[in-house]
Nucleic acid binder design. Sequence first.
DNA 1: GTCTATACAGTGATAGAC
DNA 2: GTCTATCACTGTATAGAC
Lengths: 206, 206
Amino acid sequence: MTTREEISTGSSRAKIISTCTELFLEHGFAGTSMSAIAKACQMTKASLYYHFSGKEDLFIACVTDGYGVALRALQSIVADETAAPHDKLKRALIALYETTISSPVGRMSPLIAEVSRAFPSVARSFHSEYIAPQQALLWQIIEAGIASGDFRAVDRKQLFHIVFGPMVTLSLSREMFASFDDLDEHFPVEELRDSHIEVIIRMIRA
Amino acid sequence: MTTREEISTGSSRAKIISTCTELFLEHGFAGTSMSAIAKACQMTKASLYYHFSGKEDLFIACVTDGYGVALRALQSIVADETAAPHDKLKRALIALYETTISSPVGRMSPLIAEVSRAFPSVARSFHSEYIAPQQALLWQIIEAGIASGDFRAVDRKQLFHIVFGPMVTLSLSREMFASFDDLDEHFPVEELRDSHIEVIIRMIRA
DNA sequence: GTCTATACAGTGATAGAC
DNA sequence: GTCTATCACTGTATAGAC
């Protein structure tokens, strides 16, 4: 399934988006100039304006671009009918860590915060097209577990607070302190992830 | 105890810092111009440059300014010799929520992420003068509880992951989605805080 | 679809009067 | 300690040739 954008203007657009996403992640929205983007893409500013109506449009494309990919991994786990609730939950949490910490969309949260007042529509889209679907998918697993008696009945918002909080903060911390040479020692992803998953499992087990 | 800055140039500096902090929080670092700051402070750019050597210096002052106040609440809780470990922990967590979500320093995390590559020294200062002392203070309570047999022996990093993760993410979310008119319904601070505290207590209780 | 050239408002920062 | 005036530069965005 290819989206309309992917076939309309070919690969130039895709190349700009991926190059540009890196720049935004590294320097922020206001800190990344159209000139810098053009240079990194090895083209002129005028060419950028052929593909995108402006800087805001370009930013929205960068944010939106990864929604599908980021959600797909989770979707396939939810769709798996053979696995037990505990297993599905564990795999879903690992996938969420991967997405939140390593994928562009996940790492873009601080950027959304930066532009949210100037462009509230970006924040709305981020929530309705990424955050909300992600939560809905995870909740499908939880609900099935509750129905089958494997999980305790838990409050949705309170659970999400405990589930997403640590992974998002870990992502933010790793962006904030990216310049530290002992980053992985301060913020070891797998070690923190695994102990976090244990806490969640203990919390929700019936 | 007054710092050297507080007495040297009087109240102009303090006024600039508080006004400027609001602007940075609202528009980000690169998104806030010296002209806008001058206007909000009801003075000219040249006057700003009399008090601060440049925009970066001004930003550092805004971030650094709140360290003391933010840590003081926690310090007084740690210093209390009469309270039991459980009580101290609970009070400390409530104080941390207050600081992380409502104080300027706490809300500045996304900003640090924004400028961290351009000015790694800001990130280092934020970590060594704010994050690390905060963690050290909390850890004093935990250690005392472990020594007295009230708390289980827990891994420091893993505990911090569960403790700070949700509150930082809640702060970030409230910044990201500040434009939502149903913000408090999506992200109700006290409800989420209290259930989070229960999880922590259950997790650490001997 | 990509280029050169350009418009022009806004940027951080400074000099020097008061 | 605050001002006016100005600096050199970069910002986003566009017009029009190829």
